[in-house]
Amino acid sequence: MSSLKDNSFLKKILQLFPIIILFIAVFNEFDANYFGIPFLSFNFAFILIFFWTLKKIENFGYGLIFVAGIINDVVTGAPIGLSSFCYMLICVATSYFRSITLRPNITKDWIFFLVTISCVNSIYYIILSYFFNIDIDYRFLLTNNFATFLIFFLFYLVFDIYYKKFFGKSDV
C-alpha cells in the first residue's frame, strides 16, 4: 500500500475516484433500478455528493457537481438545470451541517441525510409538476427516497474506509 501512496499519479487517480464515479453514475443513470423491483431503486448520485461534500475533499468541486447535474438532466430527459439545482441544495445542506457539527458520527449524518434528500426530492417533485407540467409518480419518489436513505449506511461504511485510506482522517 505504501508503494501505491508513493506513486503520485495513482494517488491522484485514487483521489479523483469519487468524482469519476459520480460522472459514470450520471452518464449511466446509476440511480435506476436494475432488478426491476421498485424498492431497490436508489439515487446513487445523492449518496456520493452528500458523503464527499460532507468530508470536504479538494477534488470534489461544486463546479463539477453542477456539470454532473446538467449531464444527469440530459440523460434522464428532465428539464436542464433541475438536477444541478438539487445537487447544489445538497451541497448547501452538507456545508451547513459541517459548520454546526463538532463531533460527527454516522447516526447524525444518516438522519441528516434523510432530512436533506426528503427536502430535495420534494423540491424536485414540485418543480417538475408545477413549473414544467411533467407528471411523475410520487410513490416511486418516496420509495426511492427511503431506499436511498437505507442504503446510505452501507455506502457510508465503504466510503469511510476509502476516505481514511486515501485522504487521511476527517477534517470535520
Binding site: 470536504k56 463546479g63 453542477f66 439545482f85 447544489m88 448547501v92
Partner: peptide, 18 residues
C-alpha cells in the same frame, strides 16, 4: 478550499438555466 465557485452563484446559475 480550492472551490472556484460559491454555492449561491451556482444555485442562481441553475435557476437561470431552468
Amino acid at each position: 478550499t480550492k472551490q472556484k465557485f460559491s454555492l449561491l452563484s451556482l444555485i442562481i446559475l441553475s435557476v437561470v438555466i431552468l
